[in-house]
Nucleic acid binder design. Structure first.
Lengths: 203, 203
DNA sequence: TTACATAAGTTAGAATCTCTAACTTTGACA
DNA sequence: TGTCAAAGTTAGAGATTCTAACTTATGTAA
């Protein structure tokens, strides 16, 4: 237990970097046991602090989970952008590469992925009319679609195609991690689905 | 409180139909507050029994939620089959109709939908090699795809297309209920995406 | 009809969890 | 060096899940 070098119990009275370590502990526990079997107390034990300590850094349990979501969303986005590097503009492979990363993230961190996309919980609760900022992921995909089609602006056709692509990889991610159906026999099937979908949507 | 005619507190010592009523109470609470803010005690209060009563019918909290999932999966499947009635074989509309129901269910019961498809939690936990029975939904879609293509058997092309369709509506459902991005402005956009996707995948 | 086994409730309580209140330690800076 | 605020701690209230032991109702068989 606690073999992770990123997490070390505090040495002195003050911890130094408790907030970050609690987020990391939370992320690990969520991944291990699922979002609903995570407890603040466990995270405290992992970090080696009392059960009251987190409340100096987070308002409550929800806010800890939310921080994990934010951190994960950042990594997700960064990975997607990185996937584009080195691929020439106008290549369908750019779209496929982003899809591969999207699905890959979900497979690597299924519980965190699920948590990310079911946040905040009562979706109806957010003030109607007031939208959260559109996720940068969306913009990224739209830009790629426009470039591939040789459009200079993001018109409604571009938006529709981008949404279809996103929808597709999102669905594929969930089906894969839920393991409800054996969606794919091999990784090569995933590759085939990704490229087929990209081809058909961009056609 | 407790205005739902389906849920009534017991009259005598014995309840009569506690198991079913607890499932219904659980379903409602999950929908209201989200799967992770549901508590057994709340369901007990709704049903008007002591907090120990559920344990005569369910092993634990998990099993209560699981029962909700099973019941929901049944309704989901039934609705999809019903959507096909009256539509002539070989009509693309059959595919679209199923997609409409799929997405509609998710919108009508977002929390339950999410719960259904994240069950069981540690997906890695299920014995490897041993697959759960493929969901009847999958078979239903495959059959329709085969019919539409005039195939007599479910070959790998049929499977690929069916999976792509499923993946698409699944992703659309999640994006809609997560409300992460304003995916669609109007219901007509959903219609357009459904028919575009069906057309492109079946082409 | 009555006896009784069993299904399906109950109360009481242990163990765990979230979060607050009040107190203490430590480090930074005037 | 003294003081204050930040970031720990302990103690504990209130809720929760689930078990153990007890009680009540009901259906069946003599």
């Amino acid at each position: 237990m606690n073999s992770d070098p990123k997490i070390q119990k505090k040495s002195g009275y003050h911890h130094g970097d408790l907030r970050a370590q609690l987020i990391e502990a939370t992320r690990q526990l969520v991944e291990e046991k699922g979002p609903d079997h995570f407890s603040v107390s466990q995270a405290c034990r992992v970090a080696g602090v009392s059960t009251a300590a987190p409340y100096r850094h987070f308002r409550n349990k929800e806010e800890m989970l939310e921080s994990v979501c934010e951190e994960a969303a950042e990594r997700h986005f960064t990975q997607m952008k990185a996937a584009l590097e080195g691929l020439p503009d106008g290549d369908l492979e750019r779209i496929i590469a982003m899809g591969r990363v999207y699905v890959g993230f979900a497979q690597a961190e299924p519980s965190v992925f699920r948590l990310m996309f079911s946040w905040p919980h009562q979706s109806g609760a957010q003030a109607p009319g007031e939208d959260a900022a559109p996720p940068p992921t969306k913009t990224l995909v739209e830009t790629e679609v426009a470039k591939l089609l040789g459009r200079t602006e993001i018109d409604s056709d571009v938006k529709l195609r981008a949404t279809m692509l996103w929808t597709f990889v999102h669905g594929l991610s969930f089906l894969l991690i839920d393991g409800k159906a054996k969606v794919c026999e091999f990784d090569s099937d995933i590759e085939e689905m990704l490229s087929e979908a990209a081809r058909r949507v961009m056609a």
